[in-house]
Nucleic acid binder design. Structure first.
Length: 319
RNA sequence: GGUGCCAUAGCCAAGCGGUAAGGCCAAGGUCUGCAAAACCUUUAUUCCCCGGUUCAAAUCCGGGUGGCACCU
């Protein structure tokens, strides 16, 4: 493990469900420490997806430097391991400038990758291997693929539900491509701890989910006022594969039908907005589950102002 | 006023005499390269109410209540 930033005992990661106010806290923390913000969000890495991903405003970005935002164009791919590599570089650079990196975002997988020091399979798994398995899956279903994984890497297979085709296929693809089982890779990954000491913070909504859901619903309405529809229209006007990851983003994927058939149809627009709220609530629920059992996460009081919470974070991370 | 149709979980809904499908919502989870994704689990001792027929009724019969449609 490397040294923490000078004057601190750890790098803060402010995580939590969508619309929980984590960005405000992170920005305040940057302001009072002179730190720089690193986003930890799988959708804010896309350029042009701004209001729907609740990206920091231009003004906020002017006040506080933001990193790991606007990294790629819609249609391009980006994985956790890409994130991890770039993020670690950013952390190094910010610390090199004598500043505190403040990590903030809701993508649980990215947060955990950082916190647990996960090292992903570092031998390439060629697309052909994966594509071939998907072809097999389309032809004969998942059963045989699952059985093969079961015989080759039982721990991995038993750990997965058969219907979770993505992971079943990845598990087998890793073995086919590298000759080492997924389980072996994971075991080796666990040996190395995190790169830096991190402390996680989360605004606490555990007891009042209704308040969080209400915040979500209201924020979606606000996003519509801020021009979400226009942004989505732009995304749909691009000549990119509809299967691209950017079309998984909540706030955009729900407009698929609207632009396909009904553009201008009021009912369809209403349905899309309803779905954005619903999907956001579902997402928040999954995020709550993700963070629930991270035992050393420091809970922040949702009733306090973002400044007070930022100060609390500062207290905890100070050397 | 008359006639017809309907009444099943928070919502939609199957069932047509043999012991309550399914979907949505909600809740609880899983996760080591798509993660705002993908996947899993749970959720009606009871079918509007009262009576009857039957070994057996959400299912058939009678009455009530409520809703919808049409007629005068």
């Amino acid at each position: 493990m490397r040294e923490p930033p000078k004057g601190y005992k750890a790098i803060p990661i402010i995580c939590g469900p969508t619309a929980s106010g984590k960005s405000d806290i992170a920005i305040k923390l940057c302001e009072i420490t002179g730190g720089e913000l690193i986003s930890c969000d799988s959708m804010q890495i896309y350029r042009h997806l701004d209001v729907g991903t609740a990206k920091a405003s231009k003004e906020e970005q002017q006040k506080v430097p933001h990193h790991m935002i606007d990294m790629i164009d819609p249609g391009e791919d980006f994985s956790v391991s890409d994130y991890l590599r770039r993020c670690l570089e950013e952390i190094g650079e910010i610390m090199g400038r004598g500043k505190l990196p403040v990590i903030c975002g809701g993508t649980g997988q990215y947060v955990s990758a950082l916190r647990d020091g996960i090292r992903y399979v570092d031998e390439p798994v060629p697309d052909e291997v994966t594509d071939q398995l998907y072809e097999r899956y389309n032809e004969e279903g998942i059963d045989k693929i699952y059985e093969e994984l079961l015989s080759v890497d039982p721990d991995c297979a038993l750990n997965l539900h058969k219907n979770n085709t993505r992971r079943v296929i990845r598990g087998l693809a890793v073995y086919k491509a590298t000759g080492k089982t997924f389980t072996q890779w994971n075991r080796e990954s666990k040996k190395s701890g995190p790169e830096y000491p991190f402390i996680l913070f989360e605004p606490d909504y555990e007891d009042r989910r209704d308040i969080l859901y209400d915040r979500i619903n209201r924020r979606v309405d606000k996003m519509m006022d801020m021009g979400l529809l226009k942004e989505a229209e732009y995304l749909y006007s691009l000549d990119i594969n509809r299967k691209s990851t950017c079309f998984q983003a909540i706030g955009y994927k729900e407009f698929g039908d609207y632009f396909k058939k009904g553009a201008g149809d009021k009912d369809m627009l209403e349905k899309a907005v309803y779905d954005i709220k619903l999907n956001s609530r579902h997402y928040a629920k999954r995020q709550l589950t993700w963070y629930r059992y991270i035992d050393d996460i420091v809970k922040l009081d949702r009733c306090l102002s973002s400044i007070d919470n930022a100060e609390k974070c500062l207290e905890v991370i100070k050397a």
